[in-house]
């Protein structure tokens, strides 16, 4: 068993003095922290604390919003993702799972193959291999292997979310962002998705934004607590949930507000 302390901590993502605003609305204020390679970083905080904004800044989906402005830097393996990387390359390296399962109106197979095809993989044998590998890694293969041609929209919510995980794995990302991935799922489906995450951290760096503090406690190695756009505290999950340094963290995780 590898505990977080025993791992060699190499920073995968470095956030330096990041501030984000949309027009007059400030979303993140002077945030700095690091995400280590092969860890699950849980990000918790009440609504409007800037969690989702943070994720969308990591893969630059915020660029689609004309009002978006930021100062500060985000480095991936030491490379500035806003200055030194083009969008497709960045988004291939940093995958994202959305709050609501979002399969495209295509078959299961074509959903998984969507990403590889974007990046010019066209040979059927190659695609078949990628689809199987990705579905296995997302713990969905056994349930769907006999009906890859059926529409992905026909799957249950939990299966759809694992399909979305498989779909982002298919482009071989290095970091995966989870944006409240279980908010629409029942406890059993949630358990499946969490199980998948635990396995994935062996090969990927995971940032998990969640409204469910218990989920962060169950899944993540380290946890960051955000409040009104500020990073209040970041530490090993065990420490955050047993001996938080900040009174506000304690109040939040013990359910006094949120």
């Amino acid at each position: 068993m590898v505990t977080p302390e025993m791992k060699i901590c190499r920073p995968k993502v470095t956030v330096k003095d990041l501030s984000v605003s949309y027009g007059r609305l400030e979303s993140l204020r002077h945030v700095s922290f690091e995400v280590n390679e092969f860890e699950i970083l849980g990000v918790i905080g009440p609504a409007a604390s800037g969690k989702t904004s943070l994720l969308r800044t990591f893969n630059r989906l915020n660029d689609e919003n004309p009002a978006f402005q930021k100062t500060g830097k985000i480095l991936l393996d030491g490379v500035d993702i806003y200055e030194k990387m083009d969008l497709p390359t960045l988004r291939k390296k940093i995958g994202m799972i959305f709050a609501l399962p979002a399969p495209l109106p295509l078959s299961i197979f074509d959903n998984i193959a969507y990403g590889p095809r974007l990046h010019n993989v066209w040979k059927t044998s190659e695609l078949e291999a990628i689809v199987e590998k990705s579905l296995r890694a997302a713990f969905l293969w056994e349930e769907v292997k006999d009906r890859l041609k059926t529409p992905a929209m026909k799957l249950s919510g939990g299966q759809q979310q694992r399909l979305c995980i498989a779909r982002s794995l298919a482009v071989e990302p290095e970091v995966i962002l989870f944006d409240e991935p279980c908010s629409g799922l029942d406890p059993i489906a949630t358990a499946h998705v969490e199980e998948a995450m635990q396995e994935l951290k062996a090969k990927y760096t995971i940032i998990l934004v969640t409204n469910n503090t218990k989920q962060a406690a169950r899944v993540s190695d380290r946890t960051a607590f955000f409040l009104m756009g500020e990073l209040v505290e970041i530490d090993r999950t065990q420490k955050i949930f047993t001996v938080p340094q900040d009174k506000r963290t304690e109040d939040y995780i013990s359910g006094r507000f949120g």
């Binding site: 959305f98 495209l104 974007l118």
Partner: peptide, 16 residues
């Protein structure tokens, strides 16, 4: 909107 975001998040260009 989710169709667009999913596609972009997988590294698609706008035209793709």
């Amino acid at each position: 909107k989710s169709f667009r975001e999913v596609s972009l998040a997988l590294g698609a260009t706008k035209w793709q």
